[in-house]
Design a protein around this nucleic acid. Structure first.
Length: 582
RNA sequence: GCCUCCGUAGCUCAGCGGAAGAGCACCUGGCUUCGAACCAGGUGGUCGCAGGUUCGAAUCCUGCCGGGGGCUCCA
């Protein structure tokens, strides 16, 4: 590993590992070791130093010492709130405690730290030399596109991510798209952090809506209007025209709808490990088994000729019917069996549902609790609605479905990468306005374009421009990275430092938009750097060593963009010339 | 009525316990130089309102106001 660790807290590592009074320092020593192992070490070095200072000051040091990179450069490179958090433990204002801590810190020599100061209500601000950022560059190279941002925090745990789960009675619409791409990105984030992930979708291929769908197809095939309450979209007529005269309308229509859905999902790069058929639960008696388990636990009762689940005992508003008085299951019952089955395959479950299913969460969690499962191991994520716009006007109609916009139309109009990226731009907690024209735009005001463009620019420098002047990037060990001193060069490295933490955060929060935000930040840093004459990679005024150092930076930034986009399922193009893109 | 999401710059939205942000729009400036499909600078905000918790609240809690969604022996 490439970190010349000058922090003398190493002494405390050796001395303190079995020294009970310095348990806190001990904990930080181990964290420091782990950080060195993972390559990004500066944060834990500072934490270990702060922990030592705190322990020496007699403080009960918190398990997670607050340490962040302030947005305002006046506040230094790193900033800690330790003195404020611990001020209750001692007499006097936080700034005084901070002063004592800083004094103790000064005694140690901490790698890359040039100065420590107290600011505001008691922040301890560290100023570092640029070397810590050059270390970042090396670690990015070592990780590469396939390793950068990835970690093992979820290792050893399995998780099932269920998304899309649409009725096989027609095409997917734009609302499905949000859940589909969100679920897929969450699955990728969890994979990137070491989880054993199953991507799964549930097919509601049983029940009354299938018969309604079949009746609608049959009616259209006979040249009639669909029955009352039937499916009215133009696609029904189109598909009916394709349907062979002797086909079973339900089975044929089922296959047709599934094929249609699969095509769009394929176009978006979404593939499932498991397509779970609701019917299969009937075949293997899983529904009856689940009911039996609930009965055995005395979680059901009969009333008014129906079978009820005591879901109110687990926080639901009301008890829920499992078997109607006419003897049929409600929608809930097979779904309970399905979730129980998923729990037999994975440690944890994530469901991605549309906002209209929000009210369903409490009863499903209650059902899991009634079965003896931990309801907290079922994480239901709800995606708020999407409104489609084009040039400021709402788009409501689709060619085939009549009343809703098909996902296929979105992909056809803006392309798969832009569709994915645009859906992922915002938190799924907020309603989204998806402007089709904007998402397809080939200008910097479109974040998709700006990000991919940044990657293409880097490729152009590294592959084309360097070759034109007969330069190739050598081994990073031979590069003098200390030549990278320009503000915009260092800014790229700062953003690259944040990447792995952002992936971890985005995975933990199931919030891909956090990673999107980071990728945009990196692209923005790259695009600014690119236009800066002081940062030119290929230039007559540059020494060979400077060119080499900058080529290493180009590759690191490229790795960051490609890895981030890769986890999001968005392409990192080598070129974006219009004629090549079309 | 109950549950839930949202309310931050003119617009679209991040930030969700630590020292108010981005893009667009608007104003100004920059192409004989790695792609100006670009870049830089500037204007612009009592973070819906009122209490509370905290050394510290856009961020947590409570109540209200405004908007979306849901409350079915539908799926």
């Amino acid at each position: 590993m490439l970190y010349p660790l000058s922090y003398e807290g190493w002494a405390s590592i050796r001395a303190g590992l079995d020294d009970a009074p310095t348990l806190a320092a001990n904990r930080y020593a181990w964290r420091l070791i782990a950080a060195i192992w993972e390559g990004l070490v500066i944060q834990e070095t500072l934490r270990a130093a702060l922990a030592d200072a705190g322990v020496a000051e007699g403080l009960d040091v918190p398990a997670e010492i607050g340490l962040e990179r302030p947005a305002n450069p006046d506040h230094g490179d790193w900033s800690s709130n330790l003195a404020m958090v611990c001020s209750k433990q001692v007499d006097g204002p936080p700034r005084d405690l901070a002063a004592r801590l800083v004094e103790r810190l000064g005694a140690a020599s901490i790698g890359h730290v040039r100065g420590v100061e107290i600011a505001g209500p008691g922040f301890i601000n560290f100023r570092l030399d640029d070397g810590w950022l050059h270390d970042v560059l090396v670690s990015v190279h070592e990780a590469g596109v396939d390793g950068y941002g990835r970690s093992a925090v979820g290792a050893g745990r399995s998780i099932n991510v269920e998304y899309v789960s649409a009725n096989p009675t027609g095409p997917l619409h734009a609302g499905h798209g949000r859940g589909a791409i969100y679920g897929d990105a969450v699955a990728s984030l969890l994979e990137a952090t070491g989880w054993d992930v199953t991507r799964e979708t549930y097919i509601n291929d049983r029940g009354t809506q299938m018969q309604t769908y079949a009746d609608s197809l049959t009616a259209r095939a006979a040249g009639e209007e669909p029955p009352e309450g039937g499916y009215m979209g133009q696609y029904i007529a189109d598909w009916a025209a394709e349907m062979p005269a002797d086909a079973d309308a339900l089975e044929w229509g089922y296959a047709r709808a599934l094929q249609d859905q699969r095509e769009v999902l394929d176009a978006l790069g979404i593939t499932f490990d498991v397509w779970f058929s609701e019917r299969s639960l009937v075949g293997d008696g899983a529904i009856e088994d689940a009911l039996e388990r609930l009965r055995a636990r005395e979680m059901v009762y009969e009333a008014d000729g129906a079978v009820w689940l005591r879901s109110t005992e687990f926080g639901d508003d009301k008890d829920r019917v499992l078997v109607r008085s006419n003897g049929e299951f409600t929608y809930l019952t097979p779904d309970i069996a399905y979730h129980a089955q998923k729990f037999s395959r994975s440690d944890e479950l994530i469901n991605v549902w549309g906002a209209d299913h929000h009210g369903y969460i409490a009863r499903m969690k209650a059902a899991m609790a009634a079965l003896g499962q931990n309801p907290d191991a079922l994480d239901v994520r709800v995606t708020q609605m999407v409104k489609l716009m084009r040039d400021g006007e709402e788009v409501k109609l689709s060619k085939r479905t009549g009343d809703i916009v098909e996902l296929r139309d979105v992909v056809d109009e803006v392309g798969a990468d832009a569709t994915r990226f645009t859906y992922l731009l915002q938190s799924v907690d907020s309603q989204q306005t998806f402007d089709l024209a904007h998402a397809a735009s080939k200008q910097m005001d479109n974040p998709v374009f700006g990000t991919q463009y940044a990657h293409a620019r880097l490729r152009r420098i590294a592959d084309v421009r360097a070759a034109e002047v007969g330069v190739t990037r050598g081994p990073i060990e031979d590069a003098d990275l200390s030549l990278l001193t320009q503000a915009r060069e260092l800014e790229i490295l700062r953003v690259l430092f944040d990447g792995p933490g952002m992936v971890e955060l985005a995975a933990a929060e199931r919030a891909p938009h956090r990673l999107v935000q980071w990728v945009r930040d990196l692209a923005s840093a790259v695009n600014s750097w690119y236009q800066d004459d002081e940062c030119r990679v290929i230039s007559e005024g540059n020494s060979a060593a400077l060119t080499q150092a900058r080529l290493q930076l180009v590759e690191a930034a490229r790795i960051g963009l490609a890895a981030g986009l890769g986890i999001l399922g968005v392409g990192a193009p080598e070129s974006m010339w219009m004629d090549e893109a079309e």
